[in-house]
Amino acid sequence: MMNERHRKLVYAVVEEYIQTALPVCSKLLTTKYDLEVSPATVRHEMVELDALGYLHQPYTSAGRIPTEKAYKLYLELADMNQPLDEKTERQIENAYYQDEEGEPRRKIKNTAKALAEELRETIIVGFGKYDTYYTGVSHLFSKPEFGDADFVRDISEIIDRIDDLLEEKLFDGAGEKMCALIGSDNSFSDNCSLLVMKFGHDMEHFLGLLGPLRMNYRYNTTLLNFTQKFLS
C-alpha cells in the first residue's frame, strides 16, 4: 500500500528522470532530495514501488525509471503554477502581436510556432473539427528517448498518420482547464503524453502539446496556461 514516503519517492524519481533521462539510483535520491532515510531504505522502497507498478528497472543493477502510473501520481502531487520570467512572456506575446494586421488564425499559428521553439515540443492547434494545425514535430526526434526502438517506431507512425490522428476524437474531454492524457490515455502513443485545453472567447478552439512521457509537465503546463489566457 502507498504511504507518504512512497509518494515522495515517486515524485523525486520522476523529477530526476525528467531532468536527466537516466535511470535514477537510491544514492542520488538520498543525496539530492530530502528523504531523511538511508540509501538502503530507499532501495528497499524502490523494490516495493516496482511491485506496485510505479517504477521499472530497465536492466539488472540499473536505477529505476518511472512508469505511466508514476507520471499520473506526479501530476497529482506537483505544483503546476510556476513563475514565468518576463522575457518568455514577451516572446510568446510578441509572436502573436508581431503581425498586427494579420488575421487571428495566422496570429495563433505564429504563437504556436513560438511555443514549439520555447518548449522544444510539438504544438497542435484545433480550429474546429477536421481543421487543425501542428508545428514542431521535428522536436520529437531530438529527445533522448529517440534511442529507444519502441519510441522511434511510435514517432514514425505518428508522422505517417498525424492528420488521421488529429481527425479522430482527440480532444474529447478537454475543457477550459488543462487536461493531461498520459501514455495509453491519448490517441498517439503509449510513449507520449498530450496536454490539451480549450481557448478562445467561447472556448471554441483547442491548444495541445505532444511530447514524450518524460516531459517537463510543470513548465509546459505553466506556459500553456499563460498562452491560453491571452489568446482568450
Rank of each mutant, 00 (worst) to 15 (best):
Q19E: 15
S26D: 15
K27H: 13
L35A: 09
S38D: 06
S38H: 01
T41M: 01
V42W: 03
V42N: 05
V42C: 01
M46V: 04
L49E: 14
L49Y: 11
D50N: 07
A51F: 05
A51L: 07
L52E: 15
G53A: 04
G53W: 02
G53N: 11
S61Q: 14
A62F: 06
G63C: 11
G63K: 08
T67H: 10
E68H: 07
K69M: 10
A70S: 08
K72W: 01
K72A: 04
E76C: 06
A78E: 15
Q82C: 04
Q82K: 11
P83G: 01
E86H: 07
E86A: 08
E89R: 11
I92R: 09
I92D: 04
N94F: 06
Y96L: 08
Q98W: 09
Q98K: 14
D99G: 06
E100Q: 05
G102L: 00
G102T: 04
P104G: 09
I108K: 10
K109R: 14
N110C: 07
T111G: 09
T111E: 06
A112L: 02
A112P: 11
K113F: 13
K113H: 14
A114L: 05
L115C: 05
A116R: 00
E117I: 00
E121F: 01
E121C: 07
T122M: 12
T122E: 09
T122A: 08
I123H: 07
I123T: 12
G126V: 00
F127S: 06
F127V: 08
T132K: 08
T132D: 07
T135L: 01
G136I: 00
G136C: 01
V137C: 02
V137S: 02
